[in-house]
Amino acid sequence: MTTLRLVIFDCDGTLVDSQRTIIGAMNSSFTQLGLPSPTDDAIRRVVGLSLHESMVRLHPGGSDVEHQELIAGYRSAFFEMRSAPDHEEPLYPGVVAVLDHIEQEGILAGVATGKSMRGLKATLARHAIHDRFITLQTADQNRGKPHPAMVQRAMEEAGVEPDNTMVVGDTTYDIEMGRAAGAYAVGVSWGYHPVDELHTAGAHAVINAFGELNGALARFMALE
């Protein structure tokens, strides 16, 4: 039987439904530079990557200066949208219940995200779940997904080995990151990448609602 000691969650598209804000801020950043906006689907495809890698993929012919200007414009627009009185960026249904269950089982929780540390802390604080996580890993302090650095650093901070770690995320970048770190990788179907791509990337399991994660935890614990 395997002991699960740490669950590392992605943020956008896994814990938090931030699609409207991300797409709006990305469109604003391109418009400010007089560039054609990427399609919504193209934007969804890069969620989870670092901002620099996202801009390189969305504007492949651009210079480094343009990419930096796009990043600055995105951050400014994102902050403005997030500060609006009517801003909505809800948790997905079942998040708090799952965090409660994990805590009751004595399992540690962490986050690994393409967001900045400032953005991640603001998001978690808004939903009053910041203190539920023992380790926070962001793309501005580590190599971005799908490189395993964020998972490796999270495990180091938690004092946990790969065999005792689960990564939960909605994109192939999350699955590839988890697998590369030697962790058990669980995909979620409600985020930005299709289920078949999560399986192809190597997901050990894919769940359709947060309530199903408890079953995935039990299956993990039953592994030899």
Rank of each mutant, 00 (worst) to 15 (best):
Tyr92Ser: 08
Ser29Ile: 02
Ala205Pro: 00
Leu51His: 03
Glu89Gly: 01
Met1Cys: 02
Glu197Gly: 00
Thr165Leu: 03
Thr200Asn: 07
Ala25Gly: 07
Val168Phe: 09
Arg132Ile: 09
Glu80Ile: 02
Pro85Trp: 06
Asp131Pro: 04
Ala128Leu: 08
Leu108Gly: 09
Leu120Glu: 10
Pro85Cys: 05
Leu35Ala: 05
Gly114Ala: 06
Glu105Ile: 00
Gln68Gly: 01
Ile22His: 04
Thr3Pro: 01
Pro194Tyr: 07
Arg57Glu: 13
Gln141Asn: 14
Val160Cys: 11
Gly13Pro: 04
Ala216Arg: 07
Phe30Ile: 00
Ser54Gln: 10
Tyr184Lys: 04
Ala209Glu: 15
Gly202Glu: 09
Ala139Trp: 03
His127Gly: 08
Tyr92Cys: 04
Glu197Ala: 14
Glu224Pro: 14
Ala180Met: 00
Thr123Met: 12
Asn214Glu: 14
Gly191Met: 07
Glu53Thr: 11
Arg153Met: 14
Asp40Thr: 13
Ile71Asp: 00
Pro36Gln: 02
Gly215Val: 01
Gly114Val: 08
Val151Asp: 07
Pro162Arg: 09
Ala128Thr: 12
Gln137Tyr: 03
Ala84Gly: 01
His67Glu: 00
Arg219Trp: 08
Pro148Leu: 05
Pro36Lys: 01
Gly110Pro: 11
Met1Val: 12
Asp12Arg: 11
Leu70Thr: 05
Glu161Phe: 13
Gln68Ser: 08
Val188Asn: 10
Arg132His: 12
Gly169Arg: 11
Thr39Trp: 02
Val95Trp: 07
Pro146Ser: 10
Leu6Cys: 05
Asp64Val: 03
Asp86His: 13
Leu213Val: 01
Gln137His: 11
Ser54Thr: 05
Ala149Gln: 15
Glu53Trp: 00
Ala218Val: 09
Glu80Arg: 14
Gly34Val: 04
Ser189His: 12
Arg45Phe: 00
Val56His: 06
Phe78Val: 00
Pro85Gly: 03
Pro93Gly: 04
Thr171Ser: 15
Met221Glu: 15
Leu223Asn: 11
Asn208Asp: 15
Gly119Gln: 10
His130Ala: 15
Val167Trp: 07
Asp86Ile: 03
Phe210Val: 06
Asp174Met: 09
Pro146Thr: 02
Gly114Arg: 08
Val111Asp: 11
Ala181Lys: 05
Met155Arg: 08
Thr171Ala: 09
Gly159Cys: 07
Val188Lys: 09
Gly144Phe: 02
Ser54Glu: 07
Gly191Asp: 09
Phe220Leu: 05
Leu15Gly: 12
Ile22Arg: 06
Asn27Glu: 13
Val95Ser: 04
Arg179Lys: 15
Val95Glu: 05
Pro38Asn: 07
His147Asp: 15
Ala218Leu: 12
Ile8Asn: 06
Tyr92Asp: 11
Leu223Thr: 13
Gly73Thr: 10
Gly191Val: 09
Val168Ser: 06
Arg219Asn: 12
Val95His: 03
Leu51Lys: 02
Ile134Ser: 13
Ala149Cys: 02
Ile43Asp: 01
Ala112Arg: 07
Ile71Phe: 00
Asn27His: 15
